[in-house]
Amino acid sequence: MADPIEIILTMMIVGQVCISVPILLSRAVKSALNWPLALFLFASGILALNSVTSSLLPEYYAVYTAIAFPALFLLCPSLWCYVEGLTADIPWQFHKKQLYRYILVLPALLISGMILILPSDVHTAVFIHDEEINSPFVSTLFIGLLIMMLLWLAQCVYTLIKIVQRLDQYRKRLKDVFSNHDKKELNWMNWLLLIAVSVWLCSLVTVFSSSLFDQGFFNSNTEMLLSLLLIWCMSHFGLQQKPALATLDSSDTKGTSKVHSNTSDRDNAIDKPVAAKKYQRSALDKTQSERIATKINSAMEQDKLYLDSNLSLQQLSKHLNISPNYISQTLNETLSMSFFDFVNHWRIEAAKPQILANHSTVLDIALDVGFNARSSFYKAFKQVTGQTPSEYRKDQVNS
């Protein structure tokens, strides 16, 4: 009989999936990015039914295992496609060439076919009672299962590394485009990856400890609770999060997207040699760059554009009537700053007199000079001055 707590957790997971997937599918008509997230949640919901199905519906467990096994191989490629789309410079679309990421589903379907043709008594003995069956067909099936699980583990590690690299690249890219990163940095994705790794490790440790010591280090409730957290995180944030870079006006991002367009087909993987040649084909010379730098600083000093908390590279480009790519190149090569650091430098300089006057709270000063949050103001202030606002005030007063 299934554990009541496990049944409750399973129903919570299935309920979350049943609520989220239809919403995502309805949105997929306008944004293809919702497809991989819906597929990830759907596969997760199927896998969550394992223990409940084996305990409450053993007569259908053979069919369930045949369906659940390929679902396992939908998780990593779907998660990667979702992260790729969320961090892309242009609206994400699914192309036929991306099907190679789901290549392991094909042999998984073959294994599923072998599971389906097992006699019911053999399937029950092997998959429910964990008994040994001396049969060439069963031995072949187990070897296939072992190979596929090893390939799945390798796929998980590879996907994790790729996602971490992608997010790091994306966050650096944000600094070239936005002056504020609030709700754009995808920090919730860090927790999601941590939970995903925890679920995988918990499952592996349980399997190996059960095989070696006939007792699992973690019970199924632990795994189900982590799975619930994972699916809730994906559903809650996935339904709210929008791509930051792809939502920029396409007419404004031609210059900035050009640098990355050639790498989008290779998962936008930018290594150091590529980054070093970022502006290799640019027609911008040193004299023009210095002239643009003067215009940028004048716009900040005279027009106080930095006071706009939502100021972006594209808005500055429109204001100066200069290509965003030229502005980005000038900031990086001539002023040695990203757009984010450049604008925040002006904000901090505007905040210093108010900090010394001490007539307003730190939050009021932060909002007044263009920051959206007290925490981001503190971080930027210390980065520019090497001190917190209170340390800066005290040091200036004493000097």
Results as ranks from 00 to 15, higher is better:
residue 163 I to D: 01
residue 68 A to L: 06
residue 355 I to R: 11
residue 63 V to A: 14
residue 338 S to C: 02
residue 60 Y to M: 10
residue 156 C to D: 03
residue 335 L to V: 04
residue 168 D to H: 13
residue 19 I to M: 12
residue 217 F to Q: 02
residue 392 Y to H: 13
residue 308 D to I: 00
residue 34 N to Q: 08
residue 332 N to Y: 01
residue 155 Q to W: 05
residue 380 A to C: 11
residue 43 A to D: 01
residue 148 M to W: 04
residue 30 K to V: 01
residue 222 T to F: 15
residue 62 A to R: 15
residue 372 N to D: 08
residue 149 M to P: 00
residue 232 W to R: 09
residue 97 K to A: 05
residue 195 I to L: 08
residue 300 M to N: 12
residue 134 N to L: 06
residue 392 Y to C: 03
residue 88 A to N: 14
residue 80 W to V: 01
residue 398 N to M: 10
residue 170 Y to K: 07
residue 267 D to K: 13
residue 97 K to T: 06
residue 277 K to H: 12
residue 120 S to M: 11
residue 252 D to V: 07
residue 389 P to W: 11
residue 45 G to Y: 12
residue 118 L to V: 02
residue 100 Y to Q: 08
residue 259 V to W: 12
residue 295 K to G: 00
residue 334 T to N: 14
residue 103 I to D: 00
residue 84 E to A: 10
residue 252 D to A: 07
residue 365 I to D: 04
residue 262 N to H: 11
residue 20 S to F: 11
residue 163 I to R: 06
residue 147 I to R: 00
residue 129 H to M: 07
residue 317 S to G: 04
residue 254 K to S: 07
residue 240 Q to H: 13
residue 326 Y to I: 00
residue 187 N to T: 10
residue 277 K to N: 12
residue 324 P to H: 02
residue 249 D to E: 14
residue 46 I to T: 09
residue 362 V to I: 15
residue 375 S to N: 09
residue 273 P to C: 05
residue 367 L to A: 02
residue 130 D to A: 13
residue 311 L to D: 09
residue 90 I to S: 11
residue 309 S to L: 03
residue 39 L to A: 14
residue 312 S to H: 02
residue 327 I to K: 05
residue 322 I to Q: 13
residue 78 S to D: 02
residue 169 Q to N: 12
residue 155 Q to R: 06
residue 295 K to M: 13
residue 127 F to R: 10
residue 122 V to D: 03
residue 291 R to F: 06
residue 97 K to C: 00
residue 164 V to C: 10
residue 95 H to I: 01
residue 229 L to A: 09
residue 150 L to R: 08
residue 227 S to P: 00
residue 201 L to S: 09
residue 359 H to R: 14
residue 158 Y to I: 12
residue 378 Y to R: 08
residue 276 A to T: 02
residue 11 M to P: 00
residue 199 V to K: 02
residue 195 I to P: 01
residue 121 D to V: 09
residue 396 Q to T: 14
residue 391 E to D: 13
residue 289 S to F: 06
residue 285 D to A: 04
residue 243 P to L: 05
residue 292 I to F: 15
residue 15 G to W: 07
residue 302 Q to Y: 10
residue 257 S to Y: 09
residue 246 A to R: 09
